[in-house]
Design a protein around this nucleic acid. Structure first.
Lengths: 213, 213
DNA sequence: TTGACAACATACATGCATGTATGTATAATT
DNA sequence: AATTATACATACATGCATGTATGTTGTCAA
């Protein structure tokens, strides 16, 4: 019965992926640990050995996705483009298309868009929210760079711009992940993003911003 | 024990509001019918008398909110403003501020942003999504009017514009309802909306749209 | 006014999910 | 080579949520 350490690590990841499958199909609250165990072709004993309970499995899934995001953005920020706004625009589209290709990421992300933190997941609410803020702060640095390079009106507020982008992205992802027929990343997302950035450029570029009270 | 019809209708609504309270506090899946009954100061017998099960309570909450939204938009559409885009902008802000005031609506809406339709709620997924599309169609008619009045470039696509607005709104609401400290409707939402509409105007007004491939 | 039915309350049966305790075989350690 | 701890599987106890069946009281209709 006893497996080698590598094998044990492998079954742990098998359990994680099985959990993701179950959560995606039936939802977090509708999946029992036994469901996960059966999907991973182990028993609940194995699950309880690697994780203390269901919320911890959820948290493990979160971590893997978040680390991946942070890494992609951080690496992109190492390159100091002459046009930070265009760089950001390209990054966003790249992230979206990466999501579309990687089904594991898509399903994981979908989890966090529809999960209810008011139950047993409440213990992780703050942590996951903090992690989201970290990604946001990274985003805002693009706008700061653009402002420093004089490509953004001085009255523009990077925070507001980041929020705008963030809300917009959230909406797109929400619809896309929801399996909505409204949005198809290949045909729509790129145009939506471009439209948003056009708005930002036109509004904040050289002239003053017209409508902000 | 037997109550009059009016009293019965009242307890039914009491149960609905109690359910909303419970769902908001503990989440849909973490509330039992007994929780709801206790919150409404009745027994589970009363709950089972008025509703066949928990999903049906959820659906009843949905209906009340949706009807309210459709009514507000439909009434606004009766007025044929000379500037449909500005009219839409004002409507959005009005809707947001109405939401902020009406806590029942806020909590109900929050339910549907975080609910997981993959479980026992799956039976209502299609219906609720269809209802969402209805509101979206109403929104797009503002853009169509603007286009007819020549206030929107002829190459602009009302559907894409509606999607843009919808995604953006979704993001704002998601953050706001999530209790995010990032967004405060009073101080932020109005500016965010104005910024978005500035983008639309600048991009699609008289000149051609620059960046759309 | 009296039956019939509505509007619940109470009681019961069932199943499932959780957590833990214990068993076991084998890898790692010495 | 013997021991120990690991990596699970199995078994058990518990509690809770659901659904239904039945009881009870008052209302309304005739």
């Amino acid at each position: 019965m006893r497996k080698t350490k590598e094998e044990a690590q492998k079954t742990k990841e098998t359990i994680l992926m099985a959990a993701l499958d179950c959560f995606s199909d039936q939802g977090y609250f509708n999946t029992s640990l036994d469901d996960i165990a059966k999907a991973a072709e182990v028993t609940r004993g194995a699950v309880y050995w690697h994780f203390s309970n269901k919320p911890e499995i959820f948290d493990a899934l979160h971590d893997s996705l978040h680390e991946s995001f942070i890494e992609m953005i951080t690496k992109d920020l190492e390159r100091d483009s002459s046009e930070p706004l265009r760089q950001l625009e390209e990054l966003i589209i790249k992230l979206l298309k990466d999501l579309e290709r990687n089904e594991t990421k898509t399903r994981t992300l979908k989890l966090f868009y529809h999960c209810d933190y008011s139950g047993d997941l409440n213990q992780f609410k703050q942590k996951h929210q903090d992690n989201k803020y970290k990604s946001l702060q990274l985003m805002s640095s693009y706008f700061q760079r653009a402002q420093q390079k004089g490509q953004l009106n001085k009255t523009a507020e990077p925070e507001i711009l980041t929020l705008t982008l963030h809300c917009f992205l959230k909406g797109i992802l929400y619809e896309h992940l929801n399996g909505s027929t409204l949005i198809n990343i290949n045909s729509h997302a790129e145009r939506l993003i471009k439209q948003l950035f056009n708005g930002l450029n036109d509004c904040h570029a050289s002239l003053g911003c017209k409508g902000n009270s």
